[in-house]
Design a protein around this nucleic acid. Sequence first.
DNA 1: AAATAATGTGGAAACGGTTACATACTTTCA
DNA 2: TGAAAGTATGTAACCGTTTCCACATTATTT
Lengths: 325, 325
Amino acid sequence: MATIRDVAKEAGVSVATVSRVINGSGYAHEDTRKAVIAAVEKLQYKPNEVARSLYKRKSKLVGLILPDITNPFFPEMARGIEDYLQREGYRLIFGNSDENRKKEREYLDTFLQNNVVGLIISTNEQDHTIFDNLTIPAVLLDRTAGHLPAVYSDQQQGGRLAAEILLARGAKEITIIRGPVEIKTVYERYLSAVSVLEDTDVKVHILDSALSYQGARKCAKEVFVKYPDTDGIIACNDIVAATILQEALAMGKRVPEDIQVIGYDNVSFTALLHPALSTIQQPAYEMGTKAAEILIKKINQEKLEEIHTVFPVSFIERGTTREVE
Amino acid sequence: MATIRDVAKEAGVSVATVSRVINGSGYAHEDTRKAVIAAVEKLQYKPNEVARSLYKRKSKLVGLILPDITNPFFPEMARGIEDYLQREGYRLIFGNSDENRKKEREYLDTFLQNNVVGLIISTNEQDHTIFDNLTIPAVLLDRTAGHLPAVYSDQQQGGRLAAEILLARGAKEITIIRGPVEIKTVYERYLSAVSVLEDTDVKVHILDSALSYQGARKCAKEVFVKYPDTDGIIACNDIVAATILQEALAMGKRVPEDIQVIGYDNVSFTALLHPALSTIQQPAYEMGTKAAEILIKKINQEKLEEIHTVFPVSFIERGTTREVE
DNA sequence: AAATAATGTGGAAACGGTTACATACTTTCA
DNA sequence: TGAAAGTATGTAACCGTTTCCACATTATTT
């Protein structure tokens, strides 16, 4: 790889001059500028970002920590982030945390050692000691935690929507699948759904489930033995919803006639189910791009209007809910 | 952030000594070693990887280029890669290429500017000019291209398996959905499937489809108007299979009685469909870890037994194929 | 025409590590 | 006991950039 010295020699100038024309900083005579450009071209010179990063103490790297890229909710977000960042000339260093504090810490440390300029993270760190003496801009994604800028969607609206829709469609015995209570967003929508339901005379059951495929299976098996007559399910995410849907179908229940199911997230495969899953959509891709946009703003020291950006959520009506009565 | 100089001062030694004890290289008296460790501890010193990388001309960063993390086949792989690399102390820089040569080039260039030590890439670059004067180890994933180490699964076996299974289960009029012919792996399994089928007296149709959700929809709409009597589908991937399955169900066809469907990949949501999708499994996660393992070996200059690692593929029997007759 | 400002350029010091080399002090052993 | 080998440590060069500063030249103003 050619270095700036090679270019300088080729163009017959000093490295300082080369640096100046490359960065468009300071003065440079038109003729020397041309000579430098020509040399750069000829030698296929690409500045070493590492050296740059060392001097400037900031790179063009952004750290991204997600619980698990294998969970279909996250790839959309990641793509949104990556697309935006790529256009702005930043690259992504990525790690899966599994919601594990130690891993988060580890990634953050190594990211910092690599001079990342910013961090996008999806975590539940409640006391967020991780962020306390954080020297770089960070934005929280899909989760909220205190003083940091965060982008997430309106969980209350989501929980409410799901409950109201099932109500409006005549469900009489609703089971709410509550996700892990440690995950604030998931817990909030649960709370919001119960609060809508408790003012009514429908029967309400609560069942816990993990967000994973495995956890969903366990819960789906459980729900119908515990509550065989439930006729409406509000799931904590689409995986759980899809699994329950499948289990219901396997038992010969008719969906949505006998039982209605509402998912959460609107992950892409939901449209492929039969019947296709009605669900609450979170605009994952847009949340990703927004998080990236905010991060870039912070990196550029621009003022933020709002610390928290909350996206509205919407009901995607498909085949697991009935026509409204 | 504390620098090595701070540590040196704190411990009352020179930076060289600090460097030596940190890296366990060269001599260091037990007492000074302890003093240095204490200073490191006290100052929470973490070596700046950028400075290291600059001097050594290699970082602890590995580049990963995937077509689209949003395609559910890739997250599993990415996770496999990331898990392995993480354990080895490497971090991942990631980019989505959309199979676009220009984007691939762009990512590769910037990765190189950041002194990545290795590259894992999933691409169809046939003439692979990108790799011609590549100075770092690289391994191809899920795709093959010439002289580079590659890990992929046995496409011929996959295509054959799908065809044989449909044959054994009594399909009489099979439609093979051919994916993009530019994607070598996808094309190979297609070829393999037709070659099995052409020696038999079953009727065979060929239909093209993209690998995406959109493309799949288009194809699924098309297949039954073109071939209303087809009773067996060999799809190029699970998305296409799931979409066709849904379409068939919507038309009132019974699956697997009237029509059987076989997918490809065994992406996680396939188990959630109803009936659950029978499919050819590629061990995506293991392919990822293997690719990472090979890369690390190459980075460490270890000799590779084989350039190409091919994984066997297996049939996951679920509800969209009949009991064997 | 002299003073001042603007332009153009290069030398050298950073940035934060690693390592070759020089030097000094201990051991070991013939 | 003295040479050789082993241990311990520091100085300084280096990795490839950017930028401060000094200096020289040219353009502009008075």
